[in-house]
Design a protein around this nucleic acid. Structure first.
Length: 562
RNA sequence: UGGGACGUCGUCUAACGGUAAGACUGCAGACUCUGGAUCUGCGUAUCGGGGUUCGAAUCCCUGCGUCCCAGCCA
């Protein structure tokens, strides 16, 4: 099983090392990844997955995949399926796949035990009353009038709650802790609520469901988890986590909290991602603009890149925000060494080589991946009429532009040197075609007289070109922090209207004829692309995974800014 | 204004009382049949104020700032 590389020290790892040395859990490390199946996994979960699985693997331990499915109103089988698929894709293998709902019976029996011990009671207050009795951040709460019911009455009511005698919201089971605690979680927290809802796994077996706080620690305990890793917002819940397992006298895992991932230009909130999907701002959970694992996968990100990113960002307790550029760096780094190069023209400009024979076609050898000799080579057809990128020609070249312009010579990648001899314009004065001559002696890309050209540009033979649709993506949000909004606004106001640009009529070299959905490739000088699910044999569709670093674009931007 | 946590280059992370380090970004250069990749160089940080100590990012006090908590969500 892969571990996020490079292995970097972090405070949780330090705790595990100390625990191993003190023999705290008999030297064992057992973790769990506990998603709620109420949405798709995203980049933030990837961090948690790499942490939990990576650390356990490093210490020779195991990790369970446990679904935290205690709220039937929000959870669905579709989400369970996607989560299983995503964890596998990331490259991790769990020891056991489990569900909190597997433990509903023991969890119920523990409630009986707590009631018998006088540590829990059935409360008849409704939701609004519970809130009022709870008090505020500054003032303590007051006791529920039902707090001192007899054990017998509590037991009877609990059994009748389970039996379905009471309507939703009419009663709860609460732990009897401390209504005066400055930690609101300890002010007699609700353990069970009545919910006449069909659960995705237990169906209608239950109409009372345990709350997270009452279910999570005990589930960990049952599985013999040693290090229960969760995010910072649960810090205030740890005393409650500890309280339940201590009162019950069962195996006591330790809860450790770390900082959740934040990424610039990105939202990592299941609730908001769900809204983007439901309101149709994206094409679905797996839209390549989404930060979901399904989305980035479709976009062309690799599990290897994700793991190395998660290893690089580190783990701590500070609430920071990672720059998107770091993620992209890891994606490029991985794709650079493993993916084949190919030529594609996204915005075609026709070039006629006037001195090239009308019917001649030459097959020119091209290296597939200069970073990987074993990737071999292929040939690309060259003929009289070609397409080049519109961006690679300027009638009036700006400073430092050394691609094609009238009278200038450039190299066609793996092809010949050509010199632009003329420009054809339409009635609107736009350049629609170029005329050029080629130097037959430069076949393959080198001139025998040793003369140099400043630029090499990509091209596709018109007669042999494959047509394709190419989808270019920008960030889904135009603000670094999508949550930063004007008074009264919301994150939807920050949606980037240019996040998707669909280009049709793109020209690809024939080697791409056999491309299948999921295939990754570099379009030379443009970026890394991934064949999309929507692709069919005759109609190829590619997603831009990430652009190549573009120093010309940087220069151009700087010049314009002057 | 109660409680919990956190403050180290622009960003993220390390240094565990002993020369503040790395990655990303930025800038400059080398090289190049991708203005890609690669390589080299440069730059910027311990939240403020006190203290303890031969010596403090690290320990203590104090101030300031940021985040989380009043779901029958997780």
């Amino acid at each position: 099983m892969p571990s996020p590389a490079p292995v970097q020290s972090n405070f949780i790892r330090d705790i595990m090392i100390a625990d191993r040395e003190s023999n705290k859990y008999g030297g064992v490390v057992r973790t769990r990844f506990p998603p709620e199946p109420n949405g798709y996994l995203h980049l933030g979960h990837a961090k948690s997955i790499c942490l939990n699985f990576g650390l356990a693997a490093e210490f020779g331990g195991t990790t369970n995949l446990r679904f935290d499915d205690t709220n039937p109103e929000k959870e669905e089988q579709e989400y369970v399926d996607s989560i299983i698929d995503n964890v596998r894709w990331l490259g991790f293998q769990w020891d056991k796949m489990l569900f909190a709902s597997d433990y509903f019976e023991p969890i119920y029996q523990w409630a009986v035990q707590l009631i018998r011990a006088g540590q829990a009671y059935v409360c008849d207050l409704n939701a609004e009353e519970v809130r009022q009795y709870r008090g505020t951040l500054v003032d303590g709460g007051k006791h529920s009038p039902y707090r001192d019911r007899s054990v017998e009455e509590n037991l009877d009511l609990l059994a009748r709650m389970r039996a379905g005698e009471f309507p939703d919201g009419s009663r709860t089971v609460r732990a009897k802790i401390d209504m005066g605690s400055p930690n609101l979680n300890l002010r007699d927290p609700v353990m069970y609520r009545i919910l006449h809802a069909t659960h995705h796994r237990t169906g209608d077996d239950w109409c009372i469901y345990p709350m997270y706080d009452y279910a999570h620690g005990q589930s960990d305990s049952i599985e013999g988890i040693t290090h229960s890793i969760c995010t910072l917002e649960f810090e205030d819940h740890r005393p409650l986590y500890d309280w339940f397992v201590d009162q019950l006298g069962i195996h006591h895992p330790q809860q450790i909290e770390f900082d959740r991932l934040n990424l610039t230009y990105t939202l990592l909130s299941k609730r908001k991602l769900l809204q983007l999907v439901n309101d149709g701002h994206v094409r679905g959970w797996d839209d390549p603009r989404m930060p979901t694992l399904s989305g980035i996968r479709r976009r062309g990100y690799t599990p290897e890149a994700m793991r190395s990113f998660c290893g690089a960002i580190g783990v701590g307790k500070t609430n920071g925000t990672i720059e998107l550029g770091l993620l992209e760096h890891h994606v490029r780094e991985d794709l650079n060494k493993r993916v084949n190069r190919v030529m594609a023209v996204l915005r075609p400009l026709k070039v006629v080589i006037e001195n090239y024979p009308d019917d001649l076609v030459e097959e020119l050898p091209a290296v597939n991946n200069p970073e990987d000799e074993s990737a071999g080579s292929r040939t690309v057809p060259f003929s009289k009429v070609l397409y080049i990128e519109q961006d690679d020609f300027r009638e009036v070249p700006p400073k430092q532009f050394y691609r094609l312009s009238p009278g200038k010579e450039v190299r066609l990648r793996w092809g010949f040197f050509i010199t632009c001899t003329g420009v054809v314009k339409n009635d609107a004065g736009e350049v629609v075609e170029l005329r050029a001559t080629y130097d037959p002696a430069t076949r393959g890309g080198n001139s025998p007289d040793g003369r140099k050209v400043k630029a090499t540009i990509h091209w596709v033979s018109a007669a042999h070109a494959l047509e394709a649709e190419v989808r270019l993506y920008e960030t889904l949000f135009s603000k670094e922090n999508p949550n930063q909004v004007e008074e009264g606004g919301n994150f939807l106001d920050n949606i980037n209207p240019n996040s998707l640009e669909v280009l049709s009529g793109c020209k690809l070299e024939p080697a791409l004829a056999t491309a299948k959905p999921g295939d990754r490739v570099q379009f030379e000088r443009l970026g890394y692309f991934c064949c999309d699910l929507d692709s069919t044999e005759g109609a190829l569709v590619f997603n831009r995974t990430v652009a190549l670093k573009d120093s010309w674009a940087k220069i151009e931007k700087r010049e314009k800014g002057k």
